[in-house]
Design a protein around this nucleic acid. Structure first.
Lengths: 154, 154
DNA sequence: CGCAGATTGTTATGCTGGTAAACAATCAGA
DNA sequence: TCTGATTGTTTACCAGCATAACAATCTGCG
């Protein structure tokens, strides 16, 4: 501690903060999030909307409650997300015969198309951003992040 | 794609989303952030406030603009953070003789103490959360996250 | 059957953590 | 001395959540 404010290469200094996983995780997350937004453009989907669409395409006829559980957010928060996806014409809320409470989320053809297109764009941007890392490093990073997720999501 | 909604072990499925660094980064970040909050308790500092204090302790007499640049946020966003730190008695805005625009951030003794105490608590919680990872894995994760940061923060 | 309790989608409200734009005060340089 | 940049600050705004309540509906139990 107690280095001076004029220190220009603070990033190279072994600070306490710099050793915390959480701090580095957040800083990295901010960068990748900005990259994501750039990938999908100004009127593109946000990360949460893309995630929801992606899961709805992968698990058609999923309900909002199930989707919220998968995304780790509350049901109430999913309403506006599904609203947006429906407005964009990417999926429909359709009534389910057996249970009049739920409305199944059924992706449209447009939705499926938009999903793969967005995925391609995001992957391309992510690859460009992370070209400083080898394929093995990316794989390792993925594995370690999933290890944290396993710990937190049970 | 096009697996069915009844699939219970979706986490084990090699979905498109699950392969994205950004998605896994966010999910992991959410978990570690929750752990951080738990570490510092209900009326404890938020992550941003702790980061600001930590950097102010490390670089005493730093200005708000410099600190904002270090944290990667706007000057305006730092005002309320420094307000809170000043209210908690952890630092003071003091006038600088040479330049009447700036006010140097000077941590108090209490601030320094609170900083190391908070750091200890956060580290302990982080260690407990990440006990599924070896020391080498944690080191690797840190290295890879910093690699992303280098890419994004120049 | 009838009824208690759980579940679903939804609304309203509020919080956190930011950004963007404007502002006066001040400084630096030609 | 004038122009332009910088600093701290206020104000307004937005995204991305959580929480609590609600009616409609389902489920299971006696």
């Amino acid at each position: 501690m107690a280095r001076h404010a004029e220190n220009q290469n603070w990033k190279l200094v072994a600070s306490d903060l710099e050793d915390l996983i959480g701090y580095n995780l957040k800083r990295a997350y901010v960068i990748v999030r900005a990259d994501f937004r750039e990938a999908l453009g100004d009127d593109g989907m946000s990360a949460r909307v893309f995630s929801a669409l992606s899961l709805a395409v992968e698990f058609p006829n999923i309900t909002q409650s199930e989707l919220a559980r998968m995304m780790g957010i509350e049901r109430s928060g999913l309403v506006s997300i599904v609203d947006e996806l429906e407005q964009r014409g990417f999926l429909n809320r359709v009534a389910v015969p057996g249970d009049r409470r739920v409305q199944a989320l059924v992706p449209t053809q447009e939705g499926r198309f938009a999903c793969v297109e967005a995925l391609k764009a995001v992957r391309a941007h992510e690859d460009a951003l992370l070209d400083v890392m080898t394929a093995k490093e990316k794989e390792t990073l993925l594995k370690l992040l999933k290890k944290i997720r396993m710990r937190g999501e049970g």
